[in-house]
């Protein structure tokens, strides 16, 4: 499986959020997107998920243009996870997770198959949310909810996993455990995984490929060592940094912003 993005341009009314973005993503690789707030990371992921329509440009999945897919076909191969979910009517975690099997079912099938339930079971165990199944979505801590949302994507069984800030609310242990799991899932299923993230250390730990964005443009694409350079980070983030090499792992230490905010 392969995703090819060519010359994407996305507008929100009069705001341009993506400028001529082109990118190739291979299966079995973890691709991390980094960049400052408003750089267009979420927009890029949402465009791949067909949630936003690009004004110009095409996205190909295995050579077939994304716009040629129906929502139904896409639901079997693609999942986009962010933190936005409506909780105004009180649903339990279990009810929420069961809906993730719908793409694989007939519209009128009344009961859940044994197989579907076993998948929900297995993934809930892996993400350690089995004890939360009977809880309401609005009664979870942020990190618990985050795990539930990621579990949904796994349960949907998509070959293309798009994660927007998956580590935002997770504690130290879950950050590592969940990214470990995502990595394993991607390698074993030869699937595609794109993760937008602010935590540069996590990106350097897990990324096969890093995409750095700024102002709606893709500034550079490469292996972590090629992207985590003091000059590049200073240019994109406007922050002086120091790169540490700890046992072959790269850690970015932010030193000071180039422009200080005035009081």
């Amino acid at each position: 499986m392969k995703i090819v993005i060519k010359g994407l341009e996305v507008w929100y009314d009069s705001i341009q959020a993506l400028r001529d973005a082109s990118l190739e993503i291979n299966e079995g690789e973890l691709t991390f997107i980094i960049g400052p707030n408003g750089a267009g990371k979420s927009t890029l992921l949402k465009t791949i998920a067909l949630i936003i329509k690009p004004k110009v440009g095409v996205i190909y999945i295995d050579g077939k243009a994304l716009s040629k897919f129906s929502l139904k076909e896409l639901s079997k191969i693609l999942a986009y996870v962010d933190y936005q979910i409506s909780k105004s009517l009180p649903s339990t975690v279990f009810e929420f997770l069961l809906t993730a099997r719908y793409p694989h079912q007939n519209m009128l099938t009344f009961s859940m198959s044994q197989e579907d339930l076993e998948i929900v079971d297995k993934i809930s165990k892996q993400l350690n949310i089995s004890h939360l199944l009977d809880r309401k979505l609005d009664q979870l801590s942020s990190g618990e909810l985050q795990r539930v949302l990621i579990a949904r994507a796994f349960i949907q069984g998509s070959k293309v996993l798009l994660l927007d800030e998956p580590s935002a609310f997770l504690d130290l242990k879950y950050k590592l455990e969940i990214l470990d799991l995502v990595k394993k899932f991607t390698k074993i299923n030869r699937s595609i995984c794109i993760i937008a993230i602010h935590d540069l250390y996590l990106a350097s730990l897990y990324a096969d490929k890093v995409v750095i964005m700024s102002n709606g443009e893709i500034v550079a694409v490469g292996r972590p060592r090629e992207i985590f350079r003091e000059d590049l980070l200073e240019k994109v983030y406007g922050v002086k940094t120091h790169i540490l090499d700890i046992n072959g792992r790269i850690a970015v230490i932010p030193l000071e912003p180039l422009n200080k905010m005035e009081l």
Binding site: K46, A49, L50, I51, S70, L71, K72, E73, L74, S75, K76, L78, A79, Y80, Q84, I85, S86, L89, S91, E95, F96, T99, A100, Y102, P103, Q105, M107, L108, Q156
Partner: peptide, 23 residues
């Protein structure tokens, strides 16, 4: 009754419903 799946998916937001294949 025949719409129960789209309605369930719809509860969690427009983007979520779209991802499960419903408009």
């Amino acid at each position: 009754l025949a719409l129960f799946k789209p309605l369930n998916a719809y509860l969690y937001g427009d983007e979520f419903a779209k991802q499960l294949g419903f408009n």
